[in-house]
Design a binder for these strands. Structure first.
Lengths: 113, 113
DNA sequence: TTGACGCATGCCCATATGGGAATATGATTG
DNA sequence: CAATCATATTCCCATATGGGCATGCGTCAA
């Protein structure tokens, strides 16, 4: 099968560093493709492609303004990701005396291999 | 270049649905590879491969117990993902009267295309 | 030592990139 | 209509899967 299509869900769309940069930049407001490309140091086609992915999963919206196309953030799709990871919060906050002990045991066990 | 290696960072590792299932299941406690495979309906090699990815990005720890290998959750790596998405919280919570209006404008603009 | 069991790997395949370059598409202006 | 600007697409390539299957490897029991 190969990997899931990056356009299939938000998790995949956000797995790409440059796309995360785009989203971060769009927090400051709408941008045209060229502006995005310049500010993030990518080519215009490159920006377009990433924007397409983001658009298809609904993380950005585009709007035509003259011959430009302004892209804006629609972060609602990130909420599921935030909530999913949030479901693990108690695990990374777990009292470290227990976690550290656990990790220590692991290392010891591995040394004994 | 092709896509970034899934073992390169947590975002990629978590982009795979089955790997998210594994992590979710491990919240209930350590599991052997076979147990995981059975409970999630995947083959043993399949489980092993996903576990390897998770291990390489540090989301799980393994421990030898007899001829079994117990995998346990180490969710600390998920924190950056949670925080990154958290940086968009105010955008998805943004007063919907404004967002809805924005979206409405977008749709209208698109119909006029 | 020989099996049997539990996992990890290696192979092969089909698929989905992400990047670069060239080009098609759309829209605006003269 | 022609020229130009802003984007989107298309090709082509190298790479990284994820899945299925067979197999190697380490461990424990008889």
């Amino acid at each position: 099968m190969a990997r899931a299509a990056t356009t299939s869900d938000v998790f995949n769309a956000v797995a790409e560093p440059q796309r995360r940069e785009i989203l971060a930049l769009l927090r400051a407001g709408e941008r045209s493709v060229t502006e995005l490309a310049q500010e993030l140091g990518m080519t215009q086609p490159g920006a377009s492609k990433h924007l397409r992915v983001l658009r298809e999963v609904g993380l950005v919206r585009d709007r035509k303004v003259g011959k430009q196309r302004l892209y804006g953030l629609d972060a609602r799709g990130l909420r599921p990701v935030h909530e999913w990871t949030g479901g693990f919060e108690r695990f990374w906050n777990e009292s470290f005396d227990r976690l550290d002990e656990y990790v220590r045991d692991l290392k010891q066990a591995q040394q004994e291999e």
